[in-house]
Amino acid sequence: MAVPAAAANDPISAPVRTGPDYFLWLCRAASLAAIFVLGWIFWEIFQEALPALEEFGASFLSGASWQPNRDRYGVLPFLVGTVATALIALLIALPPGLAIAIFLSEDFLPLPARQFVRFVVELLAAIPSVVYGLWGIFVVIPIIQQVGTWCAERFPDVPFLAGPAYGNSLLTASVVLALMILPTITAISRSSLVAVPRTLREGAYALGATRWETIFGVILPTAAPGVVAATILALGRAMGETMAVAMLIGNSSRLSWSLFAPSGTLASLLANQFGEAEGMQVAALMYAALVLVALTLAVNFAGEAVLRYTEKRTAGIR
């Protein structure tokens, strides 16, 4: 995050030593290389998307039908699906993810218990996405289908819960995505929670704050940049996930309000169609990738806004 970077480490007046700083040049070269490579990727996508950009322009975003054989391309259903799955996944994953991060950085239970939990959460990160997809098919889909049918019968008038309920649905994909992004949220949040100086914590205790008053009043606000960064990385991961989502979401391009209806995401669209795509379809898929990049960017800006707001509110502590 740009803001805290500046706030936390204003370059301290560096001591003057003779000779050029070769290390600085090395770091600068690495930075340039990173920009170069990442910019190159962006350029690559952009170039491949150009025919579709010229052909469809903004109507690409508002179009609701995706018919490769008619050369009609509109990503609205997938755009909605991407935002919805990622947000629901985040909604599900953030509370336990943060809770685990706090649990790991506090001393509620003895070290071995914490190490066990940490180990287990990091195992989650190691599971390939195909396996998440298979697990979703075998375990999550039957559960969601039952829950969905029950909801549809009980609340037929609530558009979010309307039937007919499918197992391969928006909610199924979100639940599995939530699990996939949990390690990202936990691991990065934990790092920044652990990095909060002891002195701050001790100060809060000395002022009579209880443990949770300290956590909410001092530790979380201090670690906020890290937590926000973790959330954004996790959201990015959720929006970009291909294989597991493609296996679970039902891959429909029909717009629906229901959580239990099949849907689609931009990334799963790419995974589904890239291998067999030809001509304009390739360009349209790359355009979809560009839309996804723009979405990531929007998420980042939103994250920075949240951060600036927290900083203002916690200015006294920092």
Binding site: L292, V293, L295
Partner: peptide, 8 residues
């Protein structure tokens, strides 16, 4: 870097 975190 942020731009590309969400790229599939």
């Amino acid at each position: 870097a942020k731009l590309l975190t969400g790229v599939p």
